[in-house]
Design a protein around this nucleic acid. Structure first.
Lengths: 203, 203
DNA sequence: TGGGTTTAAAATATCGATATTTCGGGAGAA
DNA sequence: TTCTCCCGAAATATCGATATTTTAAACCCA
């Protein structure tokens, strides 16, 4: 709900409110919020409860920058360790993403993440993969906040994805990394503009 | 307690045991364990409770590799943003570390971390700093596990620290980064050997 | 004797309730 | 009017207890 934007950034998370909303006790909620705290999606304040992580352009650029560094690292490792099983999974996730794009826009985001994680999945570093996954979620949150309306799926991401896929399958790490980072920075620059307008809406 | 090694790696964390040990209720313990889960210090298993994170040479190298990448990035940012306040804090933390080395070995680790974090502290990326802090804790855990006996403080780290400090104060990012990474990799290689012997002791 | 099932014990996850802390309003004094 | 102090309301953090799940042993049957 935080990622998708159902809960406003910087908003106070009243446990009692969530309790009735989710129809479960307070303990599981506290536990969930505690977990999300370390994922940077929830902030904890002294003895004043929890709130959703604030958003800002600085924070967004921070995420984007880290993401580029880590994903490039992971991608190069992944290509270096490439196996046939990895290839299969990559092609499969790519196809599923395309199919989902046509049929139900709903599941696209999940497929999109699956594809990007598949690119990195042959990396030998579990820690790195986990960080990339977390940063992906932090980043996607901004995309949702910028407005689900932005039909960014219609841009030219499709061909970008195709090119990344091709480079990866060709084991061309340099090109794949360049394309991937370009892909991120392009959407990043696009979102940065949108954030500027809605910057003051945070509590 | 996990970092220092009071709780064995891979060991099951019985809530009731911790409850009597720490003399507090079960709820705070669950919450603490949940938080540590995202810090990679505690692993959660389906409905079977928690356990301390397992250790392995792969995991150690994983941590070390990420640490080098992220700290270099942070250090370069930090030096780029260097201010007089940063200089002051850096020199201060370095001096405190030296003083603690002479007087009470106990507090050395805290000072050591403070010094290393001070090096990075002028970085413009809060996320990056948080990650570095987490990775530091993961790394230091291995040092404790390898044995507190290893009087590594007597090695030659002191001069290494001096050189890093000097390079940082001179705003020589390249040299500082090289020295810092060399510093980590040297102790890393040192620990890797020790880990090999105690690898099978994990539950 | 060995395998599979049942059953009891233990541990976990959740719930309801209490105590502590924080937040906001209102009364009183300068 | 404005500042301070105090009190009441609300929310949080913790506790004790219950229910669900897991684990391990005991049992029965082949």
């Amino acid at each position: 709900m935080i990622v998708v934007g159902d809960l406003q950034p910087g908003k106070k998370l009243k446990i009692d409110g969530l309790r009735t909303l989710l129809e479960i006790g307070a303990s599981p909620i506290r536990e969930a919020l505690s977990l999300l705290t370390s994922d940077q999606l929830v902030e904890r304040i002294d003895q004043r409860g929890f709130r959703t992580a604030a958003v800002s352009r600085e924070n967004f650029n921070d995420i984007l920058s880290l993401r580029c560094t880590l994903e490039e690292m992971a991608l190069r490792q992944s290509i270096a360790n490439a196996s046939e099983a990895w290839e299969d999974e990559l092609v499969l996730s790519h196809h599923r993403m395309l199919r989902e794009t046509r049929d139900h826009i709903e599941g696209f985001e999940a497929r999109h993440k699956a594809f990007h994680m598949a690119l990195l999945s042959a990396s030998s570093s579990p820690l790195l993969l986990k960080l990339c996954s977390q940063l992906y979620d932090l980043n996607i949150r901004y995309r949702y906040l910028a407005g689900k309306s932005l039909n960014y799926t219609k841009r030219d991401v499709s061909s970008e994805h195709d090119n990344i896929l091709r480079a990866a399958l060709e084991r061309n790490a340099d090109q794949a990394a360049e394309l991937l980072l370009s892909h991120y920075r392009k959407t990043g620059a696009f979102l940065t503009g949108l954030i500027a307008t809605s910057e003051d809406t945070q509590g």
